[in-house]
Design a protein around this nucleic acid. Structure first.
Length: 262
DNA sequence: CGTATTTGACCTGCGC
DNA sequence: GCGCAGGTCAAATACG
């Protein structure tokens, strides 16, 4: 009888600890959410004033570098996609469904990491190019800037390790594309969350559906969709709980989040 | 030997 | 016009 009581008390204690962890987690999530909302409000205000994200980018370049070049003067923005790689992966190769040939590398002033220049090699006449550089915020993140459109279709096994991978390639190490904002401020928030969630062994994959890849989505829309996604919220919550409790077994935390459905 | 990568040289655009 | 920085070229090199 006493044994049963002890077991129950131990369970009760465990539930209390989990409850505390969840409360803390909720506070952290709420705090982050409020911060994101204020950032979005700021972005919206700027857009209402007629300052686009691209102009913000140009302005920030003016601050950081007196010789900021307007590399893409056309209305169409370059597509910038961020990829998370394994920490020990020092290559600048990304599996994005196309075959690229490297034609140059350069160290830029504003980033200690070299920038690699690639041309699409799937078709001789394809004008598509891309630049890949490690992010100054998080060196495990690769920023790929795509310029020009492909005049052919992608490989069938897009985003998957391929046996036809070029020699020396560690493309299989690349994980899912992360996000496509062209606003450094918004990107800082993404990195903050990304770093925070990185402690969790489970990386959040498949957040961005394939059809989004290749299109310019607004950061507001993206964040809105991510917040509504129960998988992402759960993964995020688990990461926070892991930090707070120091527990290594995710399954020991029975997170029963009441995630609102759309 | 063919193909991909590396890397220094060169080209181009922009600000002063 | 000059200098700087990003982008591109192409010869050398590496690799299967």
């Amino acid at each position: 009888m006493d044994e049963k009581e002890e077991t129950l008390q131990a369970k009760l204690q465990q539930v209390r600890e989990e409850n505390n962890a969840l409360r803390l987690m909720l506070e952290v999530l709420s705090s982050k959410c409020r911060k994101l909302e204020s950032q979005l409000e700021e972005i919206n205000k700027n857009e209402q004033k007629g300052i686009s994200s691209y102009q913000i980018e140009s302005l920030s370049n003016h601050v950081s570098s007196k010789r900021a070049r307007l590399e893409f003067p056309t209305v169409k923005k370059p597509l910038e996609i961020f990829f998370r790689t394994l920490p020990n992966d020092d290559t600048l190769l990304i599996k994005d469904g196309y075959q690229w040939r490297k034609y140059g590398q350069k160290v830029t002033k504003d980033n200690g990491s070299p920038r690699a220049y690639f041309r699409c090699s799937m078709a001789p006449t394809c004008p598509a190019k891309k630049k890949v550089q490690r992010c100054t915020h998080d060196r495990s993140i690769l920023a790929a800037t795509y310029d020009g459109e492909h005049n052919h279709s992608a490989l069938d096994d897009s985003f998957r390790p391929s046996s036809s991978t070029p020699k020396g390639s560690s493309i299989a190490n690349n994980l899912s594309p992360t996000i496509i904002p062209y606003d450094k401020e918004a990107m800082n928030n993404v990195f903050a969350i990304s770093d925070w969630a990185q402690t969790n062994a489970r990386l959040y994959e498949d957040v961005i559906p394939q059809h989004v890849h290749g299109s310019n989505i607004k950061i507001e829309d993206y964040i809105s969709s991510v917040i509504k996604d129960p998988d992402f919220t759960t993964a995020l919550a688990e990461a926070v709980a892991h930090i707070i409790t120091g527990q290594h077994k995710r399954q020991s935390l029975n997170l029963n989040l009441d995630i609102p459905k759309e």
